[in-house]
Deep mutational scan, measured.
Amino acid sequence: NQASVVANQLIPINTALTLVAMRSEVVTPVGIPAEDIPRLVSMQVNRAVPLGTTLMPDMVKGYA
C-alpha cells in the first residue's frame, strides 16, 4: 500500500504548504504520493483543507 499526503493541520485556502502541515499515511482513496512531499513545499492549496484530509492533485496549485 502506498502512503499518501494527509493534512496534519487545517490548511487555509491559498496557504503555502510546509513540512509541518503534511504527513504521510496509507489511506483510501489514494491521494498525492508521500514521496512528493518535498515537491509540495511552498506550493499553495486552492481550497481549505481540513485536518486529516488526503491531499488530491487538484487541491494543489501547479501540482497536476
Rank of each mutant, 00 (worst) to 15 (best):
residue 2 Q to A: 11
residue 59 M to T: 03
residue 56 M to W: 04
residue 47 R to Q: 12
residue 21 A to Q: 12
residue 9 Q to W: 11
residue 60 V to C: 05
residue 42 S to A: 12
residue 5 V to T: 05
residue 19 L to Y: 13
residue 52 G to V: 02
residue 46 N to P: 02
residue 55 L to V: 08
residue 50 P to Q: 09
residue 40 L to G: 00
residue 18 T to R: 08
residue 7 A to W: 03
residue 39 R to T: 09
residue 34 A to G: 07
residue 8 N to I: 06
residue 33 P to E: 02
residue 49 V to W: 04
residue 42 S to R: 10
residue 54 T to P: 05
residue 17 L to S: 01
residue 56 M to R: 08
residue 34 A to L: 03
residue 18 T to C: 06
residue 14 N to P: 00
residue 55 L to K: 01
residue 43 M to T: 02
residue 30 V to C: 14
residue 5 V to R: 01
residue 11 I to T: 03
residue 27 V to M: 05
residue 38 P to S: 11
residue 40 L to I: 12
residue 37 I to N: 02
residue 40 L to H: 00
residue 44 Q to G: 05
residue 35 E to R: 10
residue 57 P to E: 06
residue 35 E to H: 11
residue 27 V to R: 12
residue 25 E to R: 10
residue 52 G to L: 05
residue 15 T to F: 15
residue 10 L to E: 14
residue 49 V to C: 06
residue 23 R to F: 05
residue 64 A to C: 15
residue 41 V to D: 01
residue 12 P to L: 10
residue 39 R to M: 14
residue 7 A to Y: 02
residue 5 V to M: 02
residue 38 P to N: 13
residue 27 V to L: 04
residue 55 L to Y: 00
residue 59 M to P: 02
residue 13 I to C: 12
residue 50 P to K: 09
residue 27 V to I: 06
residue 39 R to V: 10
residue 38 P to E: 10
residue 13 I to L: 12
residue 43 M to C: 08
residue 32 I to Y: 01
residue 43 M to G: 00
residue 45 V to A: 05
residue 33 P to Y: 07
residue 11 I to P: 02
residue 20 V to G: 13
residue 44 Q to Y: 15
residue 7 A to V: 09
residue 37 I to M: 13
residue 56 M to L: 09
residue 20 V to R: 15
residue 36 D to N: 12
residue 57 P to D: 05
residue 30 V to H: 13
residue 8 N to P: 02
residue 30 V to Y: 14
residue 6 V to W: 04
residue 18 T to M: 07
residue 14 N to I: 05
residue 41 V to F: 00
residue 55 L to W: 01
residue 36 D to Q: 12
residue 32 I to V: 07
residue 35 E to F: 13
residue 23 R to Q: 03
residue 24 S to L: 06
residue 19 L to V: 07
residue 31 G to F: 04
residue 62 G to Q: 08
residue 48 A to H: 14
residue 64 A to T: 15
residue 5 V to K: 03
residue 34 A to I: 06
residue 13 I to F: 11
residue 50 P to C: 09
residue 31 G to L: 02
residue 30 V to E: 11
residue 24 S to C: 08
residue 12 P to W: 05
residue 62 G to L: 07
residue 8 N to W: 05
residue 11 I to D: 01
residue 54 T to L: 04
residue 15 T to H: 12
residue 11 I to C: 04
residue 61 K to V: 14
residue 39 R to P: 00
residue 64 A to G: 12
residue 56 M to Q: 12
residue 40 L to Y: 03
residue 52 G to Y: 03
residue 21 A to R: 09
residue 45 V to G: 02
residue 10 L to T: 12
residue 27 V to A: 05
residue 47 R to C: 09
residue 59 M to R: 01
residue 52 G to I: 02
residue 20 V to L: 15
residue 20 V to H: 14
residue 10 L to W: 11
residue 7 A to N: 02
residue 36 D to A: 12
residue 9 Q to S: 08
residue 9 Q to L: 13
residue 13 I to S: 13
residue 24 S to Q: 10
residue 58 D to F: 15
